[in-house]
């Protein structure tokens, strides 16, 4: 996936990498982070360090005695079992594997639903504690001005967008918290497709989107 990618300039924060390593994030965040990691060698290497911290904590953890027959029970599970093959993932051209697992095909297979102003979305099935969605922003179009109650991760898959903070190209991830009120606008050259995760509903400023919000699950 790394071939022909433009250089990634917006990365994951230490706090997110640590929480991903610890396994304490909602599924929608894990999906978005795993997708970025598939594109970004730098963050993958940083994750390796956080996993090593987890290993060190496990090594130093206070022990709790196993049941008396535990080893025998475990050996019994192993006996006769064949070695697990490395899970073979279906490869989808141009799409990182973790995301392809959730879409079940290429981006062409996505069933988009309009959310207004030419912007379309598709919500992916994850646990309910957070929401993962694909966003389709036509070239030059804007996602309505919104803020967040919680954290929003936005990963660019195709095209690019710009908001009050910076420009985000393929592979870049924007980490937005409550303090950011932004209006992402897609680059004029090409339609922009993003993967976004939110742990609380977005907060739109305008009246119309706010009314539409419960229906659209934005």
């Amino acid at each position: 996936m790394t071939a022909a990618m433009t250089k990634i300039t917006h990365h994951l924060t230490d706090a997110l990498l640590m929480a991903y390593s610890a396994g304490t994030l909602p599924e929608a965040f894990n999906l978005t982070i795993a997708t970025h990691l598939s594109l970004c060698d730098e963050c993958r290497a940083r994750l390796g360090a956080f996993d090593s911290v987890g290993g060190a904590l496990l090594e130093g953890c206070d022990t709790v005695a196993m049941a008396d027959d535990s080893l025998e029970a475990t050996l019994a599970r192993i006996t006769g079992a064949t070695p697990a093959a490395a899970p073979r993932r279906k490869r989808v051209e141009g799409l990182p594997a973790p995301l392809a697992d959730y879409i079940g095909g290429s981006l062409d297979a996505v069933k988009w639903r309009p959310v207004g102003m030419g912007v379309k979305q598709a919500i992916l099935r994850t646990s309910r504690d957070a929401t993962a969605r694909l966003l389709y922003i036509p070239a030059g179009a804007a996602v309505p001005d919104h803020g967040h109650r919680g954290t929003e991760l936005t990963l660019v898959l195709r095209g690019a967008f710009r908001d009050e903070t910076d420009r985000f190209g393929p592979g870049d991830i924007e980490v937005a918290d409550e303090s950011l009120h932004h209006t992402p606008v897609a680059d004029i050259g090409a339609d922009c497709i993003c993967l976004a995760a939110t742990d609380a509903p977005l907060r739109f400023r305008g009246l119309i989107p706010r009314i539409a919000q419960p229906f659209l699950r934005i």
Binding site: G23, E27, L31, A34, G54, P96, A97, D101
Partner: peptide, 18 residues
């Protein structure tokens, strides 16, 4: 960690591409 997410939270754990 992955087993814990599986068992306790009954969630999939998306992993990066190999």
């Amino acid at each position: 960690r992955n087993r814990k997410i599986d068992l306790l939270r009954k969630q999939r754990r998306p992993e990066p591409e190999d």
